[in-house]
Design a protein around this nucleic acid. Structure first.
Length: 497
RNA sequence: CGGGGUGUGGCGCAGUCCGGUAGCGCGCCUGGUUUGGGACCAGGAGGUCGCGGGUUCGAAUCCCGCCGCCCCGACCA
């Protein structure tokens, strides 16, 4: 009885568990390049499904896709003061364009050709505000050109010291939206619209509950007027910033001279927004739902939604169960479901169950001779439970099960998130809470950055957001949870990824 | 960038103290028997022991130097 590869239980070591789930589900692997990851087909499929859903939502709100270069002149980055400061420490630079042979053997066979040094180094984009607004300056002349609503799907590079698969890697994939508007109100509306899209995507597709709100000055995007974010609580009670939407004000417009002529003939700077979500979402998905048996994928984003495992002894039985399995697969696929039929002869059914479970498949259908005799299949849910299900109407039963699983995952995640949130705690309770595993702590905040810094220093907790009205406590806090001064706003603290 | 750990077939490890020319489990390949929750038997393939020096008749093992990776802390989607 050989025991297959194990997944470290969450309770033992969350971080190892996270890595094991990714390995077992074949989502990603470490690459030969430090800090970079290879996204494997099963993981990339999740990203593709995410892309499709988000892209549809962007399109439905009037955005169009474009593509801007990977390389940005170094001088561009310097044009917006806060922006440089934010990214200077983690940019990769291209300084040369040629290698040459040395005539030596092995690793020393080639070297940088010093004569190929660029006059101005190119930055590998850590984000694209600068190059995009440089182009906006060319394209925008009149108020009739506004709003300009663009999005791009791209890779970006940020030279991180410490990396974790999906959550923080040197190179990652994302979408970045960039828009230009006639006035602040329109830009604000846009930033808010996108935040709503991110929230809806997190909840309806990822089954991941989030709280929305605005970032404090110290946590906002480098160069933004305001940063909005969706924040989710992971199973280890650490918060994950899962998406951000920035009202950039006129900071970049002024830096890059993005001006337009008003109807009255005046000249004004545009108001910009930028917003993004990345492959980090996959990390969030993993840490929201998965268990000690591997990945749990919400049905809407599961690369494989249904795995059919036929069971047989004789060749005769094999033909029969495989035939029925194939028919069921075809029927399910007709409704647009993603289905795999597992007819491998080298594994016993039990081994296949474990494998599909590790891959996060929400529904498994087991079809054996005894099932066929009674005209049924066994429907097993990734979230637990097996139900004999008549083959007549199996498509309806499967779709219903998938819908239920999607809803149940969201409900369970929301319940967990709420259970690990506290409101109205005293300073002492807050410190205790953050020491003992943490979670979301709602409380009054005086607005003083030094108070914020002190809290971070002592508890490692940061203000994730100043929550939007619907997430705020029924009664507004009167005093700062930390210093006791009058509260100017409610805040949500957590230790964060 | 600081602290800790680790490098030996694809993966996980033993062997290192006490030098003698590499082994175990899983995985992989072939054949057979199996198949309702991780099958079994038999045969087989696969390793410059992280890299570079040195000591020695002989180095995975001892000495010197270097490198990679992972984990934990400050910055970040």
């Amino acid at each position: 009885m050989a025991q297959a590869k194990q997944i470290t239980p969450r309770a033992k070591d969350f971080s190892e568990w996270y890595g094991d789930v990714i390995a077992q589900a074949q989502l990603a692997d470490y690459s030969p390049v430090r800090g970079c990851m290879v996204i494997r087909p099963h993981g990339y499929r999740i990203w593709e499904l995410m892309q499709r859903a988000l892209d549809d939502m962007f399109r439905a709100t009037g955005h169009r896709n474009a593509y801007f270069p990977l390389f940005i002149p170094m001088s561009f980055l310097a044009k917006e003061a806060e922006h440089v400061e934010g990214f200077a420490k983690e940019v990769a630079l291209v300084t040369h364009t040629r290698l040459r042979a040395t005539g030596k053997e092995g690793a020393g066979a080639i070297e940088v050709d010093p004569s190929s040094e660029l006059e101005e180094p190119l930055v590998v984009r850590p984000t694209s505000e600068t190059i995009i607004y440089a182009m906006f300056a060319k394209w925008i002349q009149s108020y009739r050109d506004l709003p300009l609503l663009l999005n791009q799907w791209a890779n970006v590079v940020r030279w991180e010291l410490r990396t974790r698969l999906f959550l923080r890697t040197t190179e990652f994939l994302w979408q970045e939206g960039h828009t230009a508007h006639v006035d602040e109100a329109d830009a604000e509306r846009e930033a808010r619209t996108i935040l709503g899209i991110y929230r809806r995507f997190a909840e309806e597709w990822m089954a991941m509950p989030v709280i929305t709100g605005v970032k404090t000055e110290s946590e906002k995007f480098a160069g933004a007027l305001r940063t909005y974010a969706i924040e989710a609580l992971m199973q280890d009670n650490k918060a994950l910033q899962a998406g951000t939407s920035h009202n950039l004000g006129q900071n970049f417009a002024k830096a890059f001279g993005v001006q337009y002529q008003t109807a009255a003939g005046g000249l004004e700077y545009v108001w910009n927004t930028s917003w993004g979500v990345s492959t980090r979402l996959i990390g969030g998905l993993i840490m929201t739902h998965s268990d000690d048996n591997g990945l749990v994928a919400p049905p809407k984003l599961a690369p494989v939604q249904v795995a059919i495992v036929p069971i047989w002894k004789s060749d005769d039985e094999r033909r029969q169960v495989s035939g029925v399995g194939d028919q069921v697969k075809t029927d399910l696929e007709k409704t647009g479901l993603r289905v795999e039929l597992d007819v491998r002869d080298s594994l016993k059914p039990g081994a296949k169950y474990f494998e599909w479970e590790a891959l996060g498949v929400p529904v498994r259908l087991e079809i054996g001779p005894r099932d066929l005799a009674s005209g049924q299949a066994v429907l097993a849910r990734r979230t637990g439970g097996k139900t004999p299900t008549p083959l007549q109407g199996i498509v309806g039963a499967v779709t219903a099960a998938l819908d239920e699983i999607q809803a149940a995952l969201f409900a369970a995640a929301r319940a967990r998130s709420e259970k690990n949130s506290i409101r109205g705690a005293t300073k002492a309770q807050f410190i205790e809470f953050m020491k003992g595993g943490g979670g979301f702590a709602y409380g009054g905040f005086c607005g003083n950055p030094s108070c914020e810094a002190e809290i971070k220093q002592q508890t490692n907790a940061t203000i994730r957001v100043l929550p939007d009205p619907e997430f705020r406590s029924k009664e507004a806090p009167r005093t700062c949870m930390w210093c006791g001064a009058p509260s100017v706003t409610e805040a949500v603290w957590a230790q964060a990824y």
